Computed example of a mutant assay.
Amino acid sequence: MVDETQDPKPHVIMSAGVHSAHEAAAGSPGAKTKGEISIWFFCGILMLAYGIVLLAQGSYEHFGHPHFPATVLQNLNPTFWWGVVLTVFGGFYTVRFRPGKG
């Protein structure tokens, strides 16, 4: 058995259910304090940005005069539809997890 009185590292004993000192200060596990921003907000912004870029590129490929080589399933317009999907999900995550929404 190790004698912990000789151990120079500090030991912190937390109550059950609390996973960090930050959560202990917040009052309840998982509670957001003022000034915190959810990581899902940034994921939403990133998906929204990629979705807008893909929508623009997909629209250009479909309605413009593309000089790109033909691919096997080009008639399904995958760039456009992935742009739609990413824009919808990115918009949802950006609105759902926006800062200041209590």
Results as ranks from 00 to 15, higher is better:
102 G>A: 10
68 F>G: 11
67 H>Q: 08
94 T>E: 07
41 F>V: 02
83 G>W: 04
98 R>M: 13
7 D>Y: 07
33 T>A: 12
85 V>Q: 02
66 P>K: 10
78 P>T: 11
81 W>L: 13
43 C>A: 13
99 P>R: 01
7 D>K: 07
42 F>Q: 03
24 A>V: 08
43 C>W: 06
67 H>E: 12
26 A>G: 10
92 F>C: 09
17 G>Q: 04
47 M>E: 00
44 G>W: 07
68 F>S: 14
45 I>D: 04
48 L>R: 03
75 N>Q: 12
35 G>C: 04
10 P>V: 03
85 V>M: 13
19 H>A: 09
54 L>W: 05
46 L>G: 09
6 Q>W: 09
54 L>H: 05
87 T>P: 01
39 I>C: 00
84 V>E: 02
31 A>I: 03
90 G>K: 07
42 F>Y: 15
94 T>V: 08
48 L>H: 02
73 L>E: 04
94 T>A: 15
73 L>C: 07
73 L>D: 12
59 S>R: 10
97 F>P: 02
27 G>Q: 02
83 G>C: 11
17 G>N: 07
39 I>Y: 06
12 V>M: 06
28 S>G: 15
35 G>V: 02
83 G>Q: 02
72 V>P: 00
97 F>L: 05
59 S>N: 00
25 A>S: 06
3 D>N: 15
14 M>A: 01
7 D>G: 05
52 I>P: 06
2 V>Q: 06
98 R>H: 09
67 H>I: 07
5 T>R: 14
10 P>H: 08
27 G>V: 08
93 Y>F: 15
99 P>G: 03
36 E>T: 09
83 G>E: 08
5 T>W: 00
57 Q>T: 04
83 G>N: 01
51 G>D: 04
88 V>W: 01
31 A>V: 06
78 P>I: 08
86 L>P: 00
58 G>L: 10
13 I>E: 11
22 H>A: 14
28 S>R: 14
38 S>L: 01
92 F>V: 15
12 V>P: 06
10 P>N: 04
96 R>V: 07
45 I>N: 05
27 G>K: 07
20 S>C: 11
23 E>I: 05
98 R>Y: 11
92 F>H: 10
88 V>M: 03
85 V>A: 15
69 P>S: 13
4 E>V: 12
97 F>W: 15
90 G>A: 06
31 A>E: 14
65 H>G: 13
24 A>C: 02
49 A>Q: 01
83 G>K: 02
9 K>Q: 04
85 V>Y: 14
49 A>L: 15
40 W>H: 10
95 V>D: 00
73 L>N: 14
38 S>T: 09
88 V>F: 13
102 G>P: 05
81 W>K: 05
82 W>A: 10
25 A>T: 00
65 H>T: 12
58 G>H: 09
28 S>N: 13
91 G>V: 05
87 T>C: 03
88 V>H: 03
74 Q>V: 14
3 D>G: 01
49 A>D: 02
72 V>G: 05
